[in-house]
């Protein structure tokens, strides 16, 4: 199983329809043009399915950049 970081990277690349090479630890809602509210919803659904977790309500709005996503996913996977 690949690392969490790699899985997130791949997933974001798929949902936002950009090449994986354009995703980095500094990627955020500011740097990815196609990251709109509909894709944000799709992102959350995809993350929950991929990792088999439920992201708490209050965290849903915090998933705005790669580092925070990695952190929150890691917290919830435990």
């Amino acid at each position: 199983m690949e690392s969490i970081e790699k899985r997130i990277s791949l997933l974001m690349s798929t949902v936002f329809e950009i090449p994986e090479s354009e995703i980095s630890v500094n990627s955020s809602i500011d740097t990815i043009d196609s990251w709109d509210s509909i894709r944000h919803l799709n992102l959350i659904l995809a993350l929950e399915e991929e990792f088999g977790i439920v992201i708490p309500d209050e965290e849903v709005g915090n998933l705005v950049n790669f580092k925070l996503i990695e952190l929150i996913i890691t917290e919830n996977v435990k």
């Binding site: 955020s28 915090n62 705005v64 950049n65 580092k67 925070l68 952190l71 929150i72 917290e75």
Partner: peptide
């Protein structure tokens, strides 16, 4: 915590 810092930054 790192998370607080990341959230503040974001």
């Amino acid at each position: 915590p790192e998370k607080t810092k990341l959230l503040t930054a974001s």
